[in-house]
Design a protein around this nucleic acid. Structure first.
Lengths: 362, 362
DNA sequence: TGAGATATTGTGTGCGTACACGCAAAAATT
DNA sequence: AATTTTTGCGTGTACGCACACAATATCTCA
């Protein structure tokens, strides 16, 4: 097979390696007939550059900045950060390095404090999880002004092209439709299902709304269900939570399923078990430990995994492609919506922390 | 940050790069105190070898052989082959190359014809999909005799350690349990479900049996269902197939779901639509085009995706880890069992052919 | 025709690592 | 004490490519 070097092309075309180099990178300064000859040789020998040598010779280091919400107490963001770190490890030797910045997405304006560092000139591109929309818009505007390309992950703020390199993350609307399908198939027709927004913070509100929209959309196309929406508050208070659920169940005899739009389905599981209502079908989000545990104690539940680690990973890799491979994309990349039950959870949670499984990308 | 070279360590430890090299690869021939000093410097500076330079300098080429069933008319094997090719592309510049051999798994003994080439000495390891057990055992025995390490993918023949580097593939038993859970949740208690073995070739028989076992195991632990097993034959004959299904449905009024243990669920979909029995819940396997189409025309169906492309990919990558990274594993790696419906299929089929999304691994 | 400008092509060095080789000092053997 | 052998360490080259620079060819216009 092939082990064709630039030298071999040069020999074949009867020129020097310098000329081949000029053709390869079209730096000009090559006579047209010679250029054709070289290109022909490249084609003939099916030259494939050795990426290891290339990245070694380039000897560049491109720095990027990654802006994420805090991960201390949030498994979702922790997983995302893991994906980012993995991508950074994998690209370290091939010219990409990065710093991760954390902002408190519960504090209005906290994101803006980073702008000094982000636009210091040290970074040539950005990965950002723009959870606080108003602040993020300002940051992205600055990116445009400074001509800093950026990839959005997890949440997407639609932008006029500009410096945007697109979005990598969840398709919340579709995940709502998926949840609806799961409830549809696992409950009986002519029953009632409820959308439960369980939030303690507002950061996910746009996702929650999109999920509800998708959910409603599905049942708009698949008649026979009554859908109601409730906001569940004071989740931490066991008694109050239980009361809310009990009230909800009492309000409609044909209540068959709940769609929890956040990662807090496990709270509902506890309540349902206590109420002896394990007939209710649940659909929730995210493979956090408490939800995984809930799979074991409750049968009628599906979890939808949105692959947070892959969001971080692909977010960085997209910048890598852009900076070092000259591949520009500015479209959306929706990650798979994994349907998780007790029967298939093991393989997915294994995936989440396969940090050891290190790869390095050229 | 890091950009620590061997040279830097040498400087720090007051020795030459040659000595550092000897320590790094423990080639011996280094005084104990000096070795300690170097190791200390490595620790201190947190040295991380530059893998691009490493693979360039090594300038090795390790050849492996990959043995797969034919892919001409089989989307499953085609996907698997794609995964293999992707892994080979990605490792090309870092010292791993491979040849793919095809054997006809419908012909007894065809695999054995390859042994001349496989053991020619050109290859230092093997990835094999041992679908024809008897033949495969002979091949694997020869591997042991020639000290050729091998990774099994897709099907696993249990071996006494030997040269085995483990298994990458599906967990058929668990996929049966998953199918059972899906049917359990989407049908009503006290109903009947049927396992349908639809085979035209025998190669998958062990998988089919394992799937049935898992299915039965689930309903052993979750009572209330009656499970029957049927072999469906003459699949291509529309009339005969329809008759078999009709007979099956007539035999039990409470029949609610079918578990198709092969990738041929789409045949059943056609029949059910014609029979006007779209109440039957189906669980089938594999994201082949006809099944994907079936998702659109039939609501009550789940497909389980066994990630054939990842099987090929990880199979090769495992050899890569072993040969070039010195990481030896000989355990099983079960790939995720993706639950697919019409609502989430788009993201998965996208994954299947992301050939463009090229990465290169060091 | 020839000097100077310009277009075209060739040469050399370095990227960080692996590895072969060689030299010196220490140890073992005679 | 002279020698061989072993041990410990440094030097140099190659890997394939990018890129700076040197060198040569071609053209321009007087």
């Amino acid at each position: 097979m092939s082990k064709i070097r630039i030298k071999d092309i040069a020999l074949e075309a009867g020129v020097s390696v310098g000329t081949v180099d000029r053709v390869l990178h079209n730096r000009g300064r090559v006579a047209k007939d010679v250029e054709e000859k070289v290109k022909e040789a490249i084609r003939l020998l099916n030259y494939q550059p050795n990426l290891a040598a290339r990245s070694l010779a380039r000897n560049r280091n491109h720095k990027i900045a990654v802006v994420l919400p805090p991960h201390k107490e949030d498994e979702f963001w922790r997983a995302q950060r893991k994906g980012v770190l993995r991508a950074l490890r994998n690209t370290k030797d091939v010219g990409l390095s990065g710093d991760i910045f954390t902002f408190d997405d519960r504090k209005q304006g906290d994101l803006l404090k980073l702008s000094g560092q982000l636009f210091s000139g040290d970074y040539e591109a950005l990965v950002i999880a723009p959870t606080t929309t108003e602040d993020a818009v300002l940051i992205l505007d600055q990116c445009d002004k400074h001509s800093l390309p950026y990839v959005q992950i997890n949440s997407n703020i639609e932008r006029e092209k500009s410096q945007s390199l697109g979005y990598v993350g969840q398709d919340s609307f579709q995940s709502g439709r998926l949840a609806a399908k799961l409830l549809d198939l696992s409950t009986q027709n002519k029953s009632t299902v409820a959308v439960l927004h369980m939030e303690s913070d507002v950061k996910n509100s746009s996702h929650m709304i999109a999920k509800e929209m998708g959910f409603l959309d599905y049942f708009d196309q698949n008649k026979g269900y009554q859908v109601i929406t409730r906001r569940i508050v004071e989740i931490e208070d066991e008694k109050k939570l239980s009361d809310q659920i009990e009230y909800l169940l009492a309000s409609d005899d044909s209540m068959k399923g709940f769609f929890v739009t956040t990662s807090r389905a496990h709270y509902i599981v506890e309540v349902l078990i206590k109420l002896g209502r394990s007939d209710i079908v649940l659909v929730g989000f995210d493979l956090i430990q408490k939800n995984i545990d809930a799979l074991k104690s409750y049968k009628n539940i599906f979890l939808i995994n949105q692959n947070p680690a892959l969001q971080g990973f692909y977010g960085v890799m997209r910048l890598f492609d852009y900076i070092l491979q000259n591949k520009r994309v500015d479209d959306k990349k929706y990650l798979p919506l994994d349907v998780i039950t007790l029967e298939n959870v093991s393989n997915y949670s294994h995936i989440q922390d396969r940090d050891n499984n290190d790869e390095v990308y050229l």
